[in-house]
Design a binder for these strands. Structure first.
Length: 574
RNA sequence: UGCCUCAUGGUGUAACGGUAGCACAGCAGACUCUGAAUCUGCUUGUUAAGGUUCGAAUCCUUAUGAGGCAACCA
């Protein structure tokens, strides 16, 4: 990763996770290597919120010269698939992170987990419970009142073991029996009230096949996975905070069984800490809500450019650098905040400004006729591909008597401080010449159909030899050479900053009906050469990305990635 | 009405007992062959009340507000 994307920070400005890890390193708790992990469940596509977690997990490992594993936390086969697992890998690689040979799957540890479970039974720390789920719910109690013990809680270990083996052998139906840790039914922490650690589930596993019909629960599996991988720092989101005592309980049991990894003579005791998940304005982040948008066809699939999914952002034209920069800037804390999507857009523009080639395209055209320019003649204006980067070179843009310019760049009666085309006001046609409007032609309804004017032959290239200045420069396209292209103008998916914030209204009622507008635009010929996935800047308009799905040579389709900042529209609203 | 966590400008974060800073957003201006970018300047903040201290955003107490926990999900 390049340094220029790192935000400046002082030595003392370190978020709490960084400080935590630094202290452990100093105290020699890591055995010489910090190991973290990103543990997605392969049951859906990852989104910008996951990207934050990925940047933290991989970022902390990088910062401390350690290793970050990618682990599929696949303990519930009813929801998981290889397709999801592959998409997750692809998205993480695209974001720019590398897990090296640290790829793991919880399923690879099923044997060991089972062994630990039997061990727990033998030690009288787990038992097979035959309460129905309804009974269990009743026995467990509620947060404000203690639970009561299962009638089978004190069954003899030998009996429990026999039962558990029969569970494994497939002798029981789903939900009839389960294995529970024997902890404390009166604990104020519900997760300590003899949590279920194994359930019967006659479902084949996408990765482990049909070897198992019992599967471990998250609270049991996760610390075991961390421990076996030698993970030193296990970072997750806030909702797991109340699970931490249980995580530590499992680690303690493993310690007693002598199962903790020893690295360079140091016993690695994984520790969990929690940080606030990302909330972004004008979108939703829950997997369930995103799934709903897809299933109800409110959007065009998981990779719809309006979606906050990584694949959606990618298709929209976002860059990994911009996303990483964003994740760096939002910081890490335990406060459940809502980050303004404007910051994400800032990071995007900042990155694209440096690298996107400049092109000219007119989204809402009106014809311009240069009356003193010869009919049928074509000249070429040499335009810079990126004014901030001379190395990007130049291109030749065809110019002729008839041009197309942006409708909003003309005002018959100019507003105050309007520097664009208006009768009698000289403007610059970007990279070409000066132009002055003389008169307009209108249709029966009074709409302008043609703007007539003259150019100054002495201003070819964009500057007059007498050195006079013009206040406005506009983009244009030669009518005779214009390439039509389909442009999708994307806007925020929701009309309100927090679509989930109103409990009385469904979030769908806040969908922005104008989140997608499709128009036919006209561009200079070079635009047609853009490769799918390539982002260019349509000067004065915004950044646009050739769609990876539907753009084909000869029939280009562009997605608006993000607009340019626009201080003129603000001016007009005053 | 149990347990856990959190609270700094509009937003997000920093300050770890010693001058409340940075970024985004906003506003004003300079510059400009993109009304972009760049540059300058500005507005706005420690939830409240007590306490400890020479000194509190920071430590303590209480209150208030927000979030989490009652899947055989993760």
């Amino acid at each position: 990763m390049s340094d220029e994307h790192k935000t400046v920070e002082s030595d003392t400005s370190r978020h709490f996770l960084k400080q935590w890890i630094a202290e452990d390193v100093a105290a020699g708790k890591t055995g010489g290597q910090v190991v973290t992990r990103f543990p997605p469940e392969p049951n859906g596509y990852i989104h910008i919120g996951h990207a934050k977690a990925i940047c933290i997990d991989f970022g902390m490992a990088q910062e401390f010269g350690g290793q970050c594993n990618l682990r599929m936390d696949d303990t519930n086969p009813s929801k998981e698939s290889d397709e999801y697992a592959e998409s997750i890998k692809q998205d993480i690689r695209w974001l720019g992170f590398d897990w090296g040979d640290g790829f793991y799957s919880a399923a690879n540890l099923f044997d060991k987990m089972y062994e630990i479970a039997e061990n727990l039974i033998g030690r009288g720390q787990a038992y097979v419970c035959d309460l129905t789920q309804e009974q269990w719910k009743e026995y467990r109690g509620i947060p404000t009142a203690p639970g009561k013990e299962s009638p089978t809680r004190d069954r003899a270990p030998a009996e429990n073991l026999a039962l558990f083996r029969r569970m494994k052998a497939g002798e029981f139906a789903d939900g009839t029996l389960c294995l529970r840790a024997k902890i404390d039914m009166s604990s104020p922490n519900i997760h300590f009230r003899d949590p279920v650690i194994y359930r019967i589930m006659h479902v084949p596993h996408y990765h482990a096949g049909d070897t198992w019909c019992i599967y471990p629960m998250y609270d049991f599996a996760h610390p075991i996975e961390d421990a076996y991988e030698g993970v030193t720092h296990s970072m997750c989101t806030l909702e797991f905070e109340v699970h931490r005592p249980l995580y530590d309980w499992v680690i303690d049991r493993m310690d007693e069984m002598g199962l903790l990894v020893v690295r360079n003579g140091v016993k690695i005791r994984p520790q969990q800490r929690e940080f606030a998940r990302l909330n972004l304005s004008y979108t939703v982040m829950s997997k369930r809500k995103l799934l709903q948008l897809v299933q109800e066809k409110r959007v065009d699939g998981w990779d719809d450019p309006r979606m906050p999914t990584v694949c959606g952002l990618r298709r929209r034209g976002y860059t990994p650098e911009a996303i990483r920069d964003f994740c760096e800037r939002i910081g890490v804390s335990k406060y459940e905040s809502q980050t303004d999507v404007a910051l994400l857009e800032y990071c995007l523009r900042d990155d694209l400004n440096k690298r996107a080639l400049r092109r000219m395209a007119v989204l809402d055209p009106v014809k311009v006729v240069i009356d003193n320019y010869p009919e049928g003649r074509t000249e070429y204006a040499e335009a810079q591909n990126n004014p901030d980067d001379p190395a990007a070179g130049t291109r030749q843009v065809p110019f002729g008597r008839e041009l197309l310019i942006e409708r909003e760049d003309f005002m018959e009666v100019p507003a105050k401080k309007f520097f664009r085309v208006t009768p009698g006001q000289e403007v610059r046609l970007r990279a070409a010449c000066f132009f002055t409007c003389t008169h307009v032609v209108k249709d029966a309804a009074g709409a302008v159909t043609e703007i007539h004017g003259t150019y100054d032959p002495d201003s070819k290239g964009g500057n007059a030899s007498d050195g006079r200045k013009v206040k406005g420069t506009i983009h244009w396209v030669s009518a005779a050479h214009a390439v039509p292209l389909t442009v999708r103008l994307y806007d925020r998916l929701f009309t309100v900053s927090d679509p989930m914030g109103d409990e009385t209204r469904d979030f769908l009622t806040f969908l922005n009906p104008e989140s997608l507008k499709t128009v036919t635009a006209f561009a200079e010929p070079a635009v047609a050469e853009a490769l799918p996935g390539q982002t260019v800047q349509f000067e004065r308009v915004g950044y646009f990305c050739a769609d990876t799905r539907e753009s084909v040579p000869g029939k280009p389709v562009f997605n608006r990635t993000v607009t340019l900042k626009d201080s003129w529209t603000k001016e007009t609203k005053k």
